[in-house]
Simulated assay, not measured.
Amino acid sequence: MDKKQTHEDTGFLFNVDILITNSTNALALQALLEMLSGHHQIADFKIKSGMELGQIIDVMLQEKRKSLISKSRLSSSSPAAEVKKIKAKVDIPLKPTLPQAKNDDNRADQGTELNEWIRVYIRDNRLIRLTANRNGQHISMPCRILNFDEDKQLLNVYHVDEKQVYTFSLNEVDEFI
């Protein structure tokens, strides 16, 4: 009549608010994800709030919808013609072709052009392959750009295979494909 005790791991669910201090929301999110992913006892997690990423994208999409609605009401052309006009305006090539810098004046133009490409990748939530050189080690990863800090020249990217957020200095990045 001895009762055998089995030691099976049981899952427990907790709702927790965590305050993380960092210079940006994206860096704080990266720190949180690293903490949660670093423990083998955490089987799964869901971040329900606190991410400030994507607010600019939401505003831009709302403005775009408003302008499309007002344009379609004002125009008398067929809906198919309107779709072609909008598609022609929105279509952007997948690979950026940036001019090579020939002098210091061109470098400033190239930087703003690169910043614009990065904003397009963020806005369109494009899947890209980022090639970087970090501490002499070449890294190539499929990712989406989450955030770009133009002042500090920092990129926050989400590695789609590893499901982790990484931060790169822009001078570490060799190529976006």
Rank of each mutant, 00 (worst) to 15 (best):
M60L: 08
I86Q: 11
Q41P: 00
W117I: 03
G11A: 14
K89Y: 13
K84Y: 08
C143I: 07
S67V: 08
G50I: 02
V157D: 00
Q110H: 14
S78I: 06
D44N: 12
K66E: 11
N156W: 11
Y166I: 06
A80L: 08
D151M: 10
N115C: 08
T167Q: 12
N115S: 05
D104F: 11
Y158C: 02
S78G: 11
R65Q: 15
D44P: 09
V16R: 06
V160E: 05
I18P: 01
V120I: 12
E113K: 11
M1W: 05
I177E: 14
K4D: 05
V173M: 04
T167P: 05
I118S: 01
L155C: 03
K85T: 15
F45D: 03
S72R: 06
D91K: 09
L33Y: 06
M60A: 09
G50C: 01
Q55K: 08
I42E: 04
N115I: 09
Q5Y: 10
L61D: 09
H138R: 14
Q55M: 12
Q30I: 08
H138C: 10
S75P: 03
N135S: 09
D104L: 15
G38I: 01
A81W: 07
S75E: 07
I118L: 06
S37V: 04
E82R: 14
K85I: 15
I57Q: 05
P96W: 01
K46L: 12
I139E: 05
Q153F: 07
I145M: 04
V157P: 01
Q62Y: 05
Y121F: 12
N106P: 11
S70N: 09
L98I: 03
G11P: 10
V16F: 04
I86N: 08
K64R: 15
N147H: 11
I42A: 02
V90P: 01
A31M: 08
K84F: 07
K85N: 15
D9T: 03
E52T: 07
A108H: 15
D149R: 00
I118T: 00
R65W: 13
K85G: 15
T167W: 03
N25M: 02
M141F: 02
A101Y: 05
L94G: 13
I177T: 14
K46V: 12
V173Q: 02
Q137V: 03
V83Q: 13
H138M: 14
A132Y: 02
A43Y: 06
Q30N: 02
V83R: 14
V157W: 00
K85M: 15
D105I: 14
T24Q: 01
I56Y: 10
I18Q: 00
N147K: 11
L127N: 03
K48R: 06
R134Y: 06
K46P: 06
A80V: 13
T167M: 13
L32N: 01
V160R: 02
A101Q: 11
G38W: 01
V165M: 04
F45I: 13
I20H: 06
L53E: 10
L127A: 06
L29P: 00
M141I: 06
F12E: 15
I145V: 10
L53R: 02
M1P: 07
I20R: 05
Q153A: 10
E34C: 11
G136N: 09
R123P: 02
F176M: 04
K84R: 12
I86V: 10
K89V: 10
E162L: 14
L33S: 09
